[in-house]
Amino acid sequence: MTATITAPPETPVRKTGRPKQNREAIFLFLPALLPVLLLSVYPLIRGIALGFTDARAGLNVDTSFVGFDNFAKLLQNDLFWSSFRIGVIWTLSVTILQFVAALGLALLLNTDIKFRGVARTLALIPWAMPPVVVAIMWRLLLHPTNGPVNEVLQTLNLTDQPVNFLGDFGTALPAVIVVGIWVGMPMTTVTLLAGLQGIDRSLYEAAAVDGAGVWSQFWNITLPQLKTVIVAITSLDLIWNFNSFGLVYVLTAGGPGGKTMLPMLFAYNEAFRYGNFGMAAAMGDVMVVIIIVFLAFYLRNRLRSQA
């Protein structure tokens, strides 16, 4: 997956034989083309368009174009916006905390400490687990009566009542965020570690000669050198976290009281519980616009400060 994060290597252009190459390229593309057009490009466009219709479940119901009606209704829909707010809190907290935690771990794994092979392997495990299993596992861990987390808290006298982390209004979102961090850490760690290993050792040696301390080396060499990798992985994490579904669906299904109702869950319910496909697609449209605006802003700022 790491290969996906860094830009694909530039290929030197061959100036000769271009027309022939184009034809050959098309030939190589063909097997992929039909499925991609049919099942990816077309659904994408159709999905966007669906947001402007009143498509809904029902036997022999007609769908008609309704312009911006859905969006006008969405503006009035407090529940959608509150789910949006939750989505933003979730996305930002998970992405940022995950990044900080992963950077720490990557730095540790990049030192010459013992057992780092074992540590590295263990650290990757969450990545290999299906999100549904992760959710089940954390439900066991956070269970109010026979979960170990409550047991530990009570033994240490930090709480006198068992806390139903996933069922309590105050703790549900933070608990879900912790699980989100847990799931996403390996990926971020591996990427950052790869970035760290790519940094030229001689930069540090030169800095050490100049008498720079560990912190100064971190701020002046490590972070600037990692910048591209950091921007790439945090952007991807942002997108993935904003669009995440399975984990929270199984952990809380949006409860208690909608406190963990991520926008994806909200839109899913609108479509597949209440049968309002057009409205759900409109929600999806809003999500896309927000993601794109956000990313554009983030990437522009990052890249500009890099230049």
Partner: peptide, 25 residues
């Protein structure tokens, strides 16, 4: 080839779009 930027664009777009938008169509 000219397909290259198009493909890379598609790769990017397919990551950004929420699946809810795709799954209904």
């Amino acid at each position: 080839s000219r397909l290259r930027p198009v493909t890379n664009g598609w790769i990017l777009v397919s990551q950004v779009f929420p699946v809810i938008l795709i799954v209904i169509p």
